[in-house]
Amino acid sequence: MDVVEIDGLRIAFRRAGSGPAVVFVHGGGEDGRAWTPQLDALSDEFTVIAWDEPGAGGSGDVAEGFALSDYADSLAGLLRALDVAPCTLVGLSWGVTVILELYRRHPAAARSLVLADGYAGWRGSLGPAEADTRLAGLRDQPADSFDPTLPGLFAGPPPAKFVPLLEAMAADVRRDSMLTALTAMAHADLTDVLETIQVPTQLIWGALDARSPLSVAHDFQRLIPGADLAVIPGCGHVSNLEAPEAFNDILRFFLRRHPA
């Protein structure tokens, strides 16, 4: 793991391989380790980088009032510090929301986008009632027994080989930091950003995603000019871990179709 300082905040990241840069943005309650099967598979052809967002993994704690714009600016700062922009940005779930905000604020940083099982914010993709319900459920958990594991992440039981990874990430979740991130996602509506995207965009969705259903994927496809949608059968929300081979095949095909 490497570390850089962005606007006084420590940002940790993993980097491997060589070639065109591909930057991975993880979901809520995760850190860069969530992209392990992608970094392992794609480092033979690409420079693969997975950050730990502010407040997660090896990165520094977020300040009170840290907003969605701050996550996006921190990511843009990392791209500048590593001199990899414009690059391909790959996000899953909450990571998609961060990427959309980055595109709103720093569109020149993106060469292409891969958006998986994500949201234009919970409010934007699920509506105010569902966004408020999800956030209330997290806030109501007592601090001494806080469980960052959200229901419906997988279509079935978590893949056995990734259970230790999932447990390790869950053990390292900082409650306040996670609530900061998911509060930002609950309040966000980035639907208006989708139709402004002018770079090649690949959508990847689990057919059985219970957190961000296929209706959200179809909204993304309808609104993002020229977006392609690949649906992975029998797969839930965390498609990069539940079906890593299929996910990696889709990603590699897209990257080769849209070279740097």
Rank of each mutant, 00 (worst) to 15 (best):
residue 1 M to F: 07
residue 1 M to C: 08
residue 2 D to L: 14
residue 3 V to F: 10
residue 6 I to Y: 07
residue 7 D to Y: 09
residue 8 G to N: 12
residue 9 L to C: 08
residue 12 A to E: 15
residue 12 A to P: 02
residue 14 R to G: 09
residue 15 R to P: 02
residue 20 P to Y: 06
residue 20 P to K: 12
residue 21 A to D: 12
residue 24 F to R: 09
residue 25 V to T: 11
residue 25 V to Q: 05
residue 29 G to H: 02
residue 32 G to N: 08
residue 33 R to L: 08
residue 33 R to E: 05
residue 33 R to P: 00
residue 34 A to Y: 00
residue 35 W to R: 04
residue 39 L to P: 01
residue 42 L to A: 08
residue 47 T to F: 02
residue 59 S to Y: 05
residue 59 S to H: 05
residue 61 D to N: 12
residue 66 F to W: 15
residue 66 F to Q: 12
residue 67 A to F: 01
residue 67 A to D: 14
residue 68 L to W: 02
residue 69 S to T: 10
residue 69 S to D: 15
residue 70 D to T: 09
residue 71 Y to R: 12
residue 74 S to D: 13
residue 74 S to G: 11
residue 75 L to N: 14
residue 76 A to I: 07
residue 77 G to T: 13
residue 79 L to I: 13
residue 82 L to R: 15
residue 82 L to I: 14
residue 83 D to P: 08
residue 84 V to T: 15
residue 86 P to L: 14
residue 89 L to C: 10
residue 92 L to Y: 00
residue 95 G to W: 02
residue 103 Y to P: 00
residue 107 P to R: 14
residue 108 A to K: 06
residue 119 Y to N: 14
residue 122 W to Y: 09
residue 123 R to I: 02
residue 127 G to T: 04
residue 127 G to N: 07
residue 127 G to K: 05
residue 127 G to R: 04
residue 130 E to R: 10
residue 133 T to L: 12
residue 135 L to A: 04
residue 140 D to C: 02
residue 141 Q to C: 09
residue 144 D to V: 08
residue 144 D to A: 11
residue 146 F to W: 04
residue 153 L to H: 05
residue 154 F to R: 13
residue 154 F to D: 13
residue 156 G to A: 15
residue 164 P to T: 05
residue 164 P to I: 04
residue 166 L to T: 07
residue 167 E to I: 00
residue 167 E to R: 12
residue 170 A to R: 14
residue 172 D to Y: 00
residue 178 M to R: 11
residue 179 L to D: 05
residue 179 L to V: 06
residue 183 T to S: 09
residue 185 M to S: 10
residue 190 L to W: 00
residue 190 L to P: 03
residue 191 T to Q: 14
residue 198 Q to I: 01
residue 205 W to D: 13
residue 208 L to I: 04
residue 209 D to S: 13
residue 211 R to I: 14
residue 214 L to N: 09
residue 217 A to I: 09
residue 223 L to Y: 00
residue 224 I to P: 01
residue 224 I to K: 05
residue 226 G to A: 07
residue 228 D to R: 11
residue 231 V to R: 03
residue 234 G to N: 05
residue 238 V to M: 12
residue 240 N to I: 02
residue 241 L to I: 14
residue 242 E to K: 10
residue 243 A to W: 02
residue 244 P to F: 06
residue 245 E to K: 13
residue 247 F to T: 11
residue 249 D to C: 02
residue 249 D to T: 13
residue 251 L to G: 02
residue 254 F to P: 00
residue 255 L to F: 01
residue 256 R to D: 01
residue 257 R to Q: 13
residue 257 R to S: 14
residue 257 R to F: 03
residue 259 P to M: 05
residue 260 A to R: 08
